[in-house]
Design a protein around this nucleic acid. Structure first.
Lengths: 337, 337
DNA sequence: CTGTTAGCGCATTCAC
DNA sequence: GTGAATGCGCTAACAG
């Protein structure tokens, strides 16, 4: 490995000078600078980030902790976060805690071992809480990316659930749907919020909310949703003409359940998903509420880097609106008549 | 931050002793050890990995460079690699080069800056070559995970393409298919290999290979496949009864194209995919050739860590067999008659 | 404008 | 069994 010392010797200057030209930390004579640059180039010198980190105290690495990677949304988030980070010269360290509390606990030491400059998390409530408390205690800068607002006083970047739900319901109404069901995970804080805005929007639109049209699932994936909807359909025929699933996977589970009961999609049941993760791959291509992933990722990185720079940086909270993406899973009842 | 010095002072011993009990690097009196351990615990001391890295020369970080993250297969690989790494005490740094040569080149400096102990890559030929050459030059331990065997002399872990294709073709034949088409990316080395085994298996099975039944695409995604298959169908009706797509996304593109031409799936056209990425989410659920992702990831990590430990570790090549996953996209022609 | 030096936190050799 | 001292590669304060 070629070190700064090697370069200094070869160039006939001191290591301080080499450091100066590398970091532009103080004026260097043009001739000297060129000489050093030339030697650096010739010897293929790269500054050792580990040594630099030890000296300067930062590692230029951000940990991103996600609850899953099987769900494509998180892969999409990871992608955006990594892109934003690399533009700023930071590396992304990835940690997947599977939304499991036990795993999270055992990973806490990784977080604490001061080998990261900051942390971005997209998490469930219980695991998120664990991480947030740890970071607070150890004074590790962090930002919550797309998490229900549990920690009002912390920096977080979320999407505006109201805009998405409003658009979804409005769209369904515009297509002639008046009986709308909702499918959500039983104990998800974020999805409860969607549920809240759902009811609110129905009321605003003069539509009744039927408690019978709320289907809850035990988990976040399509299997849980399939089970829930299948159970639902065993008892009764659906009176609703449309269903909004609180993520694309739930909606997929619903699609399968409806198919099992020979209900035509979208002719008999229209569907809307959330997240725009697998929506485009489904059949029919799923109309879904898209998340502003790029904006969310970019902003969270921006805030985090600010917090790293200024430890007293004021907690900042940002919301970005969601956008309904119209595809083929909603039938136009008006046209049909 | 609490340092080893703080611990030493508090415990009334030297830092050398503290270091000894942490690393078990030399005998320590039981009483001293307990005392030190107690203080470490009380003060919440964690050894600073950056300082450790500077001293010892390793960073306990592995870079995993993938060509995409939009394609779910890579997310699945990332997941497995991260799990394997963390078990061994290594962190995963993620880099996504989008399979772009320009991006790869600009990322090369990240690779070279000696802040990683090793590298795992899942790459296309052109980008892979760039990275391999860099690593060889800089003597960075690396292993190729699931890459067509370009570098015969390097460590790599691949899956056995023959087993998968054999199973796929055999299965199709068992369901009464004799006219089988193949859909692949035009210039993908790995897919050319699949094509090779495809022809080989057809010949073995006494089936003709019709050059007309090879459809090639310009890209790896469903859009490229949709375009290619649509163009194909514009000219002629498909004579084949089944098509194998060289990845699930290509196959999805084909499905859409067939649908456009009102061909029923699987009744009129049966389909098989590759990778088991989005296969299970499609409709009909796609029969596909699954990759042994977990085994691949685990083995590649194992080899890499060996290479890191022993610089002269002999290049090792491993193959794991693929497994056909039967779902609903292949019709049984025999039964139909 | 440039060189000398201290020290980031740790592991390790050499003494005792 | 234990401590003092050295240095990993680098940046920044201090001198000139």
């Amino acid at each position: 490995m070629v070190t700064i010392k090697d370069v200094a010797e070869e160039a006939g200057v001191s290591i301080a000078t080499v450091s100066s030209v590398i970091n532009d930390s103080r004026p260097v004579a043009q001739a000297t600078r060129e000489k050093v640059l030339k030697v650096i180039n010739e010897m293929g010198y790269k500054t050792n980030p580990v040594a630099r980190a030890l000296k300067v105290g930062n590692t230029k690495r951000i940990l991103y902790i996600v609850p899953s990677i099987k769900n494509l949304v998180f892969a999409q988030f990871i992608n955006q976060v990594q892109h934003s980070l690399i533009k700023k010269g930071y590396d992304l360290i990835l940690l997947n805690n599977e939304a499991r509390v036990d795993l999270t606990k055992s990973y806490l030491s990784i977080i604490h071992s001061s080998n990261i400059d900051g942390l971005i998390m997209t998490q469930t409530r219980s695991c998120g809480k664990l991480i947030v408390e740890s970071c607070q205690q150890k004074k590790i800068p962090f930002v919550i990316l797309f998490e229900p607002d549990i920690f009002k006083e912390e920096s977080m970047v979320t999407s505006d659930e109201k805009t998405g739900m409003d658009q979804a319901v409005e769209y369904l109404i515009s297509q002639g749907h008046h009986k709308i069901a909702l499918l959500k995970v039983a104990d998800s804080r974020n999805q409860n919020k969607r549920f809240h805005f759902f009811k609110e929007k129905l009321a605003e639109s003069g539509l009744e909310f039927n408690n019978d049209w709320l289907i809850t699932t035990a988990g976040h994936d399509e299997k849980a949703a399939y089970t829930a909807v299948t159970n639902y359909l065993q008892d009764k025929k659906p009176e609703f003409t449309a269903l909004i699933g609180c993520n694309d996977f739930l909606t997929l589970g619903a699609i399968r359940a409806f198919r099992k009961y020979k209900l035509k999609i979208p002719a008999e049941i229209s569907l809307i998903g959330y997240d725009d993760s697998i929506a485009e791959y489904l059949y029919p291509a799923l109309t879904t509420v898209g998340l502003p992933k790029k904006k969310l990722a970019k902003k969270s990185v921006e805030i985090l880097l600010n917090k790293i720079k200024q430890p007293d940086y004021q907690a900042e909270q940002n919301k970005f609106s969601q956008q309904l993406i119209i595809r083929d899973s909603v039938a136009n009842l008006k046209k049909a008549k």
